[in-house]
Computed example of a mutant assay.
Amino acid sequence: MKNIKWVFVLYAMLATFSIMAIGIFIGEGSATGVIGSIVALVAIMGFGFTTKKKMREKNQL
């Protein structure tokens, strides 16, 4: 439990919610919502990978 990187758990949860939002907006027929959710997903995943790279360079992983 001590090795859990909570920031990555947060990124994973946010990405999961974005994926769920895509499905919800598809069901509602909202193209704007789908596009917004996809943009949010790409941004969250980008932040996660960037954070992982920075932590790896600082030998924190």
Rank of each mutant, 00 (worst) to 15 (best):
Gly23Gln: 11
Ala15Ile: 08
Ile19Val: 15
Ala15Pro: 05
Ala21Ser: 14
Ile35Asn: 09
Tyr11Pro: 00
Asn3Ser: 06
Gln60Tyr: 05
Phe17Tyr: 07
Phe8His: 13
Gly33Pro: 03
Ile38Gly: 02
Gly29Cys: 14
Glu28Gln: 15
Gly23Phe: 15
Ile35Asp: 11
Ser37His: 01
Ile4Ser: 03
Val42Gln: 03
Phe25Leu: 06
Glu28His: 09
Gln60Glu: 15
Ile19Gln: 11
Ile26Phe: 09
Gly36Val: 08
Gln60Leu: 14
Ile19Tyr: 13
Val42Pro: 09
Thr32Gly: 13
Phe49Ile: 11
Ala21Ile: 02
Thr50Ser: 13
Thr50Val: 05
Ile35Tyr: 10
Glu28Pro: 00
Glu28Gly: 10
Thr32Trp: 15
Ala40Thr: 08
Ala12Tyr: 08
Gly27Asp: 10
Val39Glu: 07
Ile44Glu: 04
Leu14Met: 07
Asn59Thr: 05
Met13Ser: 10
Ser30Lys: 12
Trp6Tyr: 13
Phe47Ser: 04
Gly23Ile: 12
Ser37Cys: 07
Ala21Asp: 10
Tyr11Phe: 13
Ile44Trp: 04
Asn3Leu: 02
Val7Asn: 09
Gly29Gln: 13
Met45Lys: 14
Gly36His: 04
Gly46Ile: 07
Val34Ala: 02
Ala15Asp: 06
Lys58Glu: 07
Val34His: 00
Met1Gly: 03
Gly23Met: 14
Met20Asp: 10
Ser18Lys: 02
Ile26Trp: 05
Lys52Asn: 06
Phe47Ile: 00
Lys53Glu: 08
Ile19Gly: 09
Ile22Lys: 07
Asn3Val: 03
Gly27Leu: 11
Ser18Ala: 15
Ile24Thr: 12
Leu41Ala: 14
Gly36Pro: 06
Val39Ile: 15
Phe17Cys: 06
Ala43Tyr: 12
Glu57Tyr: 05
Met45Leu: 15
Gly27Ala: 09
Trp6Thr: 07
Ile38Glu: 06
Thr51Cys: 01
Thr16Met: 12
Ile44Pro: 01
Ala12Gly: 08
Ser30Asp: 15
Val42His: 09
Ile24His: 13
Met1Phe: 00
Val34Phe: 02
Lys52Ala: 10
Ser37Ile: 00
Ala43Val: 10
Ile24Tyr: 14
Arg56Cys: 01
Glu57Pro: 01
Phe17Leu: 14
Asn3Cys: 04
Val7Pro: 03
Gly46Asp: 12
Met1Thr: 00
Asn59Val: 07
Ser30Cys: 11
Met45Ile: 14
Ser30Ile: 09
Arg56Thr: 12
Ala40Pro: 00
Lys58Arg: 07
Ile4Val: 09
Met20Asn: 13
Leu10Lys: 08
Ile38Tyr: 00
Glu28Val: 08
Gly23Tyr: 11
Val39Met: 08
Ala40Phe: 05
Met55Phe: 10
Val34Tyr: 04
Lys2Gly: 03
Ile24Cys: 05
Ala12Lys: 10
Ala15Met: 12
